[in-house]
């Protein structure tokens, strides 16, 4: 079998006595959605931070596209193709939706040290940005400042930014959070198609979405992976049912 796109081995992170990530090993293979579920405080977001580089790992290894990226900073990991979205939307609020995405296109093209050409008339930035907005259904809101977008639209914009980065793997931290039913459904079918482009590590509380989308599921409790496998296996795993799905074994 081919080497996984993202391969995490024995990752550990402690905050004082608390083990937020406890010997976690998971991987992400081409074409799949790997969902990461677990109760609040299980360390899902901590793990996402460690993978994206905003938290330094305590110990363990993170390999991405065959290379060890554990020592790299956030920006360098993003340049190598790790596209993340945030649990709480993180955008440049004064910029329009379009300019938010254009910044990602610019980052992908690799040069921010250009001083004279006006970005708004630079079609090598505006066209790919517009295309990404169209894919997430935000094209008609392109000129609206991010601060004035609705909650759901901001989530969509986050995804458009990840798309525009041309990421080789997506780290999506609760993309459905706070979205209406309609929005969740639309996003579910969108992510379903997206996995063909690049695999997705998905942290999500919306179980309908997880069970509809995921190829594999890993369950994180107190920083530890207590179960990992295909959707049916997880659904029927007694330890998972007790710890997470809230049913007696």
């Amino acid at each position: 079998m081919a080497e996984p796109i993202l391969d995490i081995r024995n990752l550990t992170k402690s905050f004082g006595a608390l083990k937020a990530t406890d010997d976690v090993s998971i991987d992400l293979r081409d074409g799949e959605i790997h969902a990461l579920i677990g109760p609040n405080g299980a360390g899902k977001t901590t793990l996402m931070h460690q993978i994206s580089g905003s938290l330094k790992p305590g110990s363990g290894q993170i390999r991405f596209l065959g290379e060890d990226i554990g020592h790299l900073g956030v920006a360098e990991r993003a340049r190598r193709g790790l596209g993340r979205t945030f649990q709480i939307s993180s955008l440049t609020p004064e910029f329009s939706a379009l300019r938010n995405v254009m910044l990602a296109v610019q980052a992908r093209q690799g040069s921010s040290f250009r001083f004279f050409r006006e970005v708004m008339s630079d079609t090598s930035l505006t066209e790919p940005a517009m295309a990404a907005l169209e894919r997430v259904g935000l094209a008609d809101r392109a000129r609206i400042p991010a601060a004035e977008l609705s909650h759901g639209e901001r989530r969509q914009l986050e995804i458009a930014i990840a798309l525009a980065l041309g990421s080789r793997a997506f780290l999506l931290d609760e993309p459905m959070a706070g979205m209406g039913q309609e929005g969740s459904r639309a996003l579910t079918s969108f992510l379903d198609r997206l996995r063909g482009e690049a695999p997705i590590l998905l942290v999500e509380h919306d179980m309908d979405a997880v069970f509809a989308l995921a190829d594999r599921v890993s369950v994180l409790v107190y920083g530890r992976v207590i179960a990992s496998g295909r959707v049916e296996e997880i659904r029927n795993d007694p330890a998972v049912r007790t710890a997470y799905l809230g049913e007696p074994a």
């Binding site: 994206s52 905003s54 900073g73 956030v74 920006a75 360098e76 993003a78 340049r79 993340r84 945030f86 993180s90 955008l91 440049t92 910044l103 990602a104 610019q106 980052a107 992908r108 921010s112 930014i161 980065l165």
Partner: peptide, 8 residues
């Protein structure tokens, strides 16, 4: 945070 996350 956002700027770093896109690789700048």
């Amino acid at each position: 945070v956002r700027v770093a996350a896109i690789g700048i």
